[in-house]
Amino acid sequence: MTYDSATLEQLAKDADDIVSRYPVPRSALLPMLHLVQSVDGYVSPDGIAFCAKRLDLTSAEVSAVATFYTQYKRRPNGEYQVGVCTNTLCAVMGGDEIWRRVSERAGVGHDETTADGKITLERLECNAACDYAPVMMVNWEFFDNMTPESALQLVDDILDGKDVHPTRGADTVADFKSVSRVLAGFEDGRADEGGLAGEPTLAGLKVAKERGWTGESK
């Protein structure tokens, strides 16, 4: 391993915290892989060795897990993971056209990173926000009801180094490493940022209130 002593010390401390959440240490592997990405920006050979040593596994066993899940990246990831949903519902509602334009603007295809390391582009599988279609995600924050114009603006802002603002999520999108640390189970103090539920989420409730329906009326 090539981590310096300060990094290794912090990693070890965080790993202890993660392991303490579970009755059996191996359960800590998924969050520990997120933790490794928060330090290295991907699941590095060093990171695999670290997880293996801490959990008393072989590096092959850790690699087998790391390669199964799409959120674990096998080469240095861009600062922003930009996904365009091209599963059926979003694709038909315009996701295919958004993908075409975004890919053209960024100059990269699926699972490729821009030369400046800003954006890794992804054709997303369903992110369970079909009622907000077409959907994009940046570092796993929701950008709802997208159009080609709003999508290109989003890409331009990221490439220009500006903050970008999710429709539902934190006030600004944190970078890939910071978000990976949250996914390892470490709070970043931003849970209260952003609104509550979006309009489609409350659509049924709104109709019920307008029509005076309650659960007890039947």
Binding site: L30, H34, V65, Y69, T70, L183
Partner: peptide, 26 residues
């Protein structure tokens, strides 16, 4: 314990979820 997965639809299948929660391929 709140546990975050890592991008695998199959982990919605209950036994795949359990394997994933045990730190294995889902």
């Amino acid at each position: 314990t709140v546990h975050a997965g890592a991008g695998a639809y199959i982990c919605g299948e209950e036994t795949a979820l359990l394997d994933s929660l045990e730190g294995r391929r889902g």
